[in-house]
Amino acid sequence: MTLSKTIYKWLDDRFKLRELLPPIVKHPAPEYAVSNPLYCLGGTAFLCFLILATTGIFLAMYYKPTPAEAYKSVERIMLEVPMGSLIRSVHHWAANTMIAAVMLHMIRVYFMGAYKRPRELNWVVGVFLFLTTTTFGFSGYLLPWDQLAYWATKIGTGIAGSIPVMGQYISLILIGGNDLGAETLTRFYAIHVLILPAAIITLLLLHFLMVRIQGISGRL
């Protein structure tokens, strides 16, 4: 007790915690948002993101993004690495749950009209978060480099490639050549573990900041 008080005082002297903390800690959450489980969906998606980031870091320690090694490294994670199978399976399920939670969160916000003035921009950021989340799923799907991964990505990049005007550029950026191969795998890996995490963290900060400034929208 005295130790925690000493630490608190030390920090308080330097950072004025007494003034900083109450607005965060005592910030009121509306009653209807605490009692209605529909308001959990966004938080569930965020929790899934945290779990995905943690399990993803562990997977990245063993995964090797080359056509020759990718499949073997995933197989090794599943069979040899201690708890590897659990970590990868939790990553898999958290990913699917996150997408489901984001979709349900969007449906909730739509039918409650929570996107209306003054929260228009937060809806727009939300749609980009949804896009980022599905792109995460799409890029992660290729990484195990098994038959499903390869052929689903082949079709997926084919479809993205036939979007008018932008298609050929999207396809070139994603595939990095004429056909799926080593270039594609490193690109998808970079997108999955570097570009998208940076994007989603930025978007999440904006999303939460706006909720914090504008408050949670009212009744059904």
Partner: peptide
């Protein structure tokens, strides 16, 4: 879920 239904892995990719 992860314990009951582990993530799958098919045969290696074959173009």
């Amino acid at each position: 879920l992860a314990s009951v239904y582990p993530a799958g892995l098919l045969k290696p990719a074959d173009p």
